[in-house]
Each structure stands twice: as C-alpha cells, then as structure tokens.
Design a protein around this nucleic acid. Sequence first.
DNA 1: CTGTTAGCGCTTTCAG
DNA 2: CTGAAAGCGCTAACAG
Lengths: 384, 384
Amino acid sequence: MSQHDDPTREAPPATQQQPLPRRATITDVAREAGTGKTSISRYLNGEMSVLSPELRARIEAAIARLDYQPNQMARGLKRGRNRLIGMLLADLTNPYTVEVLQGVEAACHALGLMPLICHAANEVEMERRYLQLLTTYRVEGVIVNALGVREETLRPVGGGGIPAVLVDRSVDGLVADMVGLDNRAAADLGTRHLLEQRFEDIWFVVQPFEQVSSRQLRELAFRDAMRAQSAARGHTLVLNLADAADVGRGLAQLDRAIDAANATNAANTANTTSAANAVPADNPGNSTALPRIALFAANAPVALRLALHLKARYGADWQARVALLSIDDPDWAELAGITTIRQPTYDIGYRAVEFLHERIEGVQSIARDCLLPGELIVRASTLR
Amino acid sequence: MSQHDDPTREAPPATQQQPLPRRATITDVAREAGTGKTSISRYLNGEMSVLSPELRARIEAAIARLDYQPNQMARGLKRGRNRLIGMLLADLTNPYTVEVLQGVEAACHALGLMPLICHAANEVEMERRYLQLLTTYRVEGVIVNALGVREETLRPVGGGGIPAVLVDRSVDGLVADMVGLDNRAAADLGTRHLLEQRFEDIWFVVQPFEQVSSRQLRELAFRDAMRAQSAARGHTLVLNLADAADVGRGLAQLDRAIDAANATNAANTANTTSAANAVPADNPGNSTALPRIALFAANAPVALRLALHLKARYGADWQARVALLSIDDPDWAELAGITTIRQPTYDIGYRAVEFLHERIEGVQSIARDCLLPGELIVRASTLR
DNA sequence: CTGTTAGCGCTTTCAG
DNA sequence: CTGAAAGCGCTAACAG
C-alpha cells in the first residue's frame, strides 16, 4: 500500500550541473511585475475586466520574461477541480478502443478536459488498481470501458462517488450513463443480411458474455432474428480467446460444421468429390460453389481469430468455404474482403465525454442510455 | 490561453441531494485516530519503524473507517514530485504505437509511475499543445514519439528542461536518450531476404522522411544493401499517406512497374498473354509465374495502403503479381500472408521508461541510444 | 481597480 | 516515538 521509500529522494546536490531552472511561480511573476499575486491570478483566470491595461501589460511582460506556466496541481488543489478525467480502457489492442479514444480526445480538447488514460490490458486486477489510482489523483469523472468489473469495484464511482459514464457495456447494479452501439439493431441487421443472402447455416461466434452486456445483447438479438424464420439454422459458439484449449475445441466444432456444409453443397452441385482443390473461381455471375455456411463474429478480435484459423486450414481461398461477417470494422476487413458492421466509434467516445461533462457540471437526472446505430458494410465475403 | 469562467462553479446547492461525501483528508484521519497529521503522513510514507505498533493500528483503523485515500496532487505539490510522466504519441492508429504503449505501461507500473497519455493524432499543433499541457501538470519526464516536432518545440524538454526520452526516432538538435529499432540492421535484413529470393525489382515505399529519422535510416540502409550487389534494381518511392493525390501518383507509378515486371515475366515463362487471369496456382514445387517484383514497405501503415490498392487493382490474387514485405508486424500480416520484420515493441516501451526513470532519479550521462533488433518473419508473400 | 490574508491537503523540519 | 508549525503554488474572500 504505502510507497517504499526511495533512496534518491533528492538528486545528489553535488552532481547537480545545471542549476535546474526551477520553474517560475506566481510569486516570482508578481515580484517581476511589481504587483501582488492576486492580480496575476486574476490575469490567469481571464478576469481582464478588472485589470488596468497598464497592469495587465506589465503582467504579460513578466510572464513572458519568466516563461511562466501556472501549476495545474496547485490550482486544482485550491479550487477542488483539476480538469482531469479518467479513461479506463479494457483493451487497447482492440481497434474499437483506439477509435473510441479518438472521439474522447477530441471532446476533451473541446471542453478543456485532460484525459488520464489507463489501460487495463484485459486484467481485472489492473482495472481495480487503476480505478483506485484515478481517484487518488482526484479526477473529476471517469469514462469506463469496463472489463470484468462488478459493481463493487465501481462503487466509489457512479452513484454516490465520482461521476462515471460507461462505454460499450453496462455494469450490473451500477446506475450510470451509458453510450454505445445499438447492439440489438446491429446484430439484427447482420443476421438479416445473412438470411437475405440465403445462407443456410449461421454461426454466431462470441467471447464469453456473462460479464459483458453488449455481447449478451448481440447474441440475444441474433437468436431472435434467427427464430423469426425457419429457412436457416442458427448456432451460437462461445470462444474464450484467452484460453487456447477452449479456442481449439470451438474451432474444431466449426470445422466440422463447415466441412459438413460444403459436403452437402458439393453433392448438390454435383462433381468435386472431397473437400479438396475446388478451383477458387473468379468465375463471374454464378453462385454454384459458393458457401452456404456463414460465421457471424461478435467483434473484431473474434473475427480475426476466425479468419486466421480458416486461412490456416483451408488456405488463401477459405472464403469459398465460409462467409464471414463481423461487428466492428477493423482496417484489415477491407483487405480480407469481409462484410462488417461498423460502429460509430468516434461519436461514442465524443458523446461519452459530453455526458460526463454534464454530470461534472452538476446535471442531475436519471441514468441515460445513448444507443448509436451501426452501419452494414457489405463486402465480397457474404455475397452469393 | 486563460480558461473561460464556467457558469457552474459549484453545483446548485439546493439540488444537492447526497451530502456529496467529501473525501476524507489527512486531518480527518488524524482526528479520527486521535493523533497528529504528522503521524498519518509517516504511516502513509511507510516510515513504520518510527511508529508505535499501537498508534499504527489506530491509524490503520481510522484510514479504513474513513476510506481515506491520500490526495496525490497535494502530495506532489509539497514534495515537488508527483510520479507523473507524459507519453506523447504521434499516432495511436499505428499498431506499433499501441504495442509500445503496453511496454510503457508495464514499466510504469513496475516503477510506480503514472503515465499521462497524449495522442497528437498526427497533428503537429496538437503535439505542441500537449507538450505544454504536460509541463503544466508538472510531469517529471516525458517519453516522446515525436511527430513533426523540431527542436524548438521540445526545448523546454530534454537538455535544460524536464527529462525526455525519444522513442523510434530522434529529433534534430535535441540531445536526449533514444530507444527504438535498429533501423539499419532491420532494413538490411529485409533487403537481403528479398535479394536471396531473387526478386529483380525491389521498391522501397516510405512516407516522407525529412522529419523522421527512423524512416531516413531505413531508406538509407535499403539503398546501401541494394548498391552492394547488382543482380536487382532498387527504387525508392515516397508516399505521403495524408495526401490522396500524392498517393494516387505513387501507386500509379508502382502499377506501371508491376505490369512491366509481369509482362517480361510472362514473356519468359511463355504463354499467358496480358496481365489478366493468371491462374492463382496452388501448384506446389515450382516457381514459374511467381513475381519478380517486390515491395518493401517502411512500416505497417504503408504496407496496408499498398495491400489495399493491390487487392483493388489485381483482385484477391494480387500476391501472384507482387511480393510484399513490411517493417512492423500488424495482426493482419499473418492473415494476408505477407513477410514482415517485427519490432520488439514491448521492449522498446519498457526500456524507454527505464531510461526516463534513471534520468528522473538524477542520472547524468551523455545521451544514450538503445537500438533493438528486429525479427524477420517469412511468410508466403516473399517465397519464390 | 488592487493588495492582504487565509487556507486547499500534504510533507517536513524542529522541538519535545 | 510524537506533534506543532511552516509552507508547496495557487485562489478567493475581504478590505482598501
């Protein structure tokens, strides 16, 4: 808990070459300008109307001469507000996260906030620790892309504690604003597209979703959309990307389904005996050997894992065997030619900050949800 | 410059439902424990040896009861050290950056530092502003993945100002520690590989590099490696990814080269008239129609741009026309099957923090360079 | 319009 | 071993 005492509390004064130009303080400026600290402070805070042009000029000069920059820490200490907000990220490795971050940064910039970015790297323990750290720095609010947090962890935040807004997913038992994708609509959109393309076997592949509301919603919407008709079969496969063995099992299951689908496919189309060497077919304007089985990845990390496996198993031409559709639109999607549902990531981030800002400014209202629509981007992969 | 005065300085006291549980201060704890602030402070700083077990217990209890957490801002103000370091990132969109960040975070965590992450998003102006902001928060040091900064911008940093360490690239005229890829070795490694594979035409494609030392070094090493032999022709193509027109011109030039190479290739191999419909060829154990021209991308963003274009122009089978090798190993490289030179990104980040930490602790030495080796990962793309 | 005076929450002499 | 007191750099009454 308590910090270890560090041996080098001060740099060895003997070796101290450069006089270490101690930053000028408000007192220095006051002296330099021949006035009191108050006036400097007023200048700093833009209370120009209350300063004589003459004094103001002197202050300006003194500040420039000393290259003075107010110490935010000190300001924050006094004011009780430091313009810092925390941004807790579950996984920066996910392009989604980075994109959201861009929106967050833009909004912070516009609102004069400074985001403290914390990356939990998929470790619940990290998440807890960072949250603690953030409160220690007295951030005025937090934006949380929660990992495995249950409500306890976030207790100090939200409700009674500091304002919080959730991104992408909600946390059980925690009441707070939330902004993210309209998951139901997005999953429905994707499923419908697949159905329209007449895929007969559709697998929704998703990471464990007990903890993650967005995944739950997507899976649920998928099942609902499938149930609404009878032309195709729907399945859900849970893939725990952090567990190699589990991934192995899941992929094997998928392989069997794919092989089966292609076997019947081949039978129907006649010829082409086993599952080997179907000519890739640039052949335009037909739909004979095209896959009747489609994979619907709940997000980009899943999609990537699937694509890598399929490529390894079926070679470069894997898309002749299976179609792939994914929520999230990572940069390689275009290259791989897979269909995606792009999230309005930038807006999500921007909106989250706006919500938080309002809360910080004292807005009291019930928790709000902001659900933004996804956009279907059809690529070759799912076209029959 | 000066902040606008915000209307809502305090939340309307009338609506203030919850008593807004003001965080406990050291004074509260002292009172609660029936002792002085000094002892609390001592406890906080781990000076246990100087506290009677009895008092210590009382303090522990009081802290727990009040859920007290020391205010880092206040500590920092007094001590002159706040354990904050700045991390200035040119482009989070580049997977390289995110990977480096992971190393940085790990190291910070290990050293009890808190990184303030700032994302310049490729805007020089942002970079300047963030640097300013960071000094305003009195960070103890900065790690800079510089964008377009020239020395002036970084003046307050490095040399006389706060400690800085550069990542990936150096900045003209700024003396500071630097850690990054061994660019010369990496580019040499890649070029040699291409030469060994008997490519006859090799294009090094790179973003404008006047400002960016790492790009310069890579390009230089490429040319050197090419000059050392005569079997193949080497070219450098500069692609300004931020300028669509420029990209268009560059890609067109590349297209011509590729078509030309494939024309002679076809001629030599006999048959296959124009540049159309060469059968993809899963055909094992031969090397007839394989490309004799290779593209060497200076980094992942360039590689992606190239791959996207090639796919658009030549279809899914573009790799039969051109080989692609890239410095950086983004996650889609495996999927696309392109050869890469992976940077030890995590180590780069980790090392950077270690360097910075030493400087913060007062280590005085000449600026150090830490060049880490890249690793060649050969994939189908460059195999003939 | 301007300066003086108290602190914000914490650390650190310096005396008990 | 323990505590009182003086500030870190800044803001905010409160008087001129």
